[in-house]
């Protein structure tokens, strides 16, 4: 961990088994988690103890977790809240977010997803800072911004590097064209309409020449996605 000590999180979840498993998974990612199972307990503990973030289940034995969420917002506790719920209903998402949740995950969720969302909320580069992103035989060191294939450092232009870093950080997810644009040009206005395509095309060509076993997919009308070759 970069900070030296683990961040403390609070899990409010009435299912003891799930809470225990979450705590275990979070511990592996470098977090220390306390577990409470009722709104009442959480209200009391939050008066005296500071937590970096709250993972809140909505269906609790003594009421709706959204009540606790409103109470926290009312008391102006500056703590990101990640809501977990079994209600994947059509109107639940809007409802939960309006009540002040920072993010929302429907059960069953991937632990990896939970940690990623948590780190986004904590505005923390997480355990990837200074670390190495890896897809197939392609590696990217976020510390010195160096891409290497099969352990061999590769030479890429600054903008190609920027595109690659963004795609590798969003591994497995679609990055919109707008995001790429903002990432490599900032908010400058005079970008030619196909500038992004040009850089992606170059990067794709370079990766192929370097025999990287990855592919930059174009999702027409939406964006790009970096994935391992099949």
């Amino acid at each position: 961990m970069s900070n030296g000590w683990p961040m403390r999180l609070l899990i409010v979840e009435d299912n003891v088994e799930l809470a225990g498993l979450l705590a275990k998974g979070l511990k592996a990612a470098g977090y220390e988690a306390d577990i409470l199972s009722t709104i009442d307990e959480a209200n009391t503990v939050l008066r005296t103890t500071f937590y970096a973030a709250l993972i809140l289940d909505l269906g609790l034995p003594d009421g709706d977790g959204l009540g606790l969420l409103r109470e926290i917002r009312h008391r102006n506790i500056p703590m990101p809240v990640l809501v977990l719920t079994a209600r994947g209903g059509l109107q639940d998402r809007v409802h939960g977010l309006r009540s002040g949740a920072d993010d929302y995950l429907v059960k069953p969720f991937a632990l990896e997803e939970l940690i990623a969302r948590l780190e986004a909320q904590l505005r923390r580069p997480g355990h990837l800072l200074g670390g190495v992103l890896r897809i197939a035989n392609l590696e990217f060191d976020t510390g010195n911004r160096q891409a290497s294939i099969n352990g061999q450092p590769q030479l890429l232009s600054a903008r190609e590097t920027a595109v690659l870093e963004l795609l590798m950080r969003s591994k497995g997810r679609v990055v919109s064209k707008k995001q790429v644009e903002d990432h490599i040009f900032g908010h400058s206005n005079d970008i030619s309409s196909n500038a992004v395509e040009v850089y992606v095309h170059r990067l794709r060509k370079q990766l192929a020449e370097m025999e990287a076993k990855v592919q930059v997919h174009t999702i027409r009308g939406v964006g790009y996605l970096l994935a391992e070759n099949k």
Binding site: N15, E17, L18, L21, L22, K24, G25, A28, G59, A86, R87, G88, G89, V106, K107, P108, F109, A110, L111, E112
Partner: peptide
């Protein structure tokens, strides 16, 4: 009913999934 069913079905799935991931 839908809310209860969602809770009763998704919570065990969650446990199962998290257990497998760890």
């Amino acid at each position: 009913f839908t809310a209860d069913a969602a809770h009763e079905l998704r919570t065990p799935l969650s446990i199962l999934r998290t257990r497998m991931e760890t």
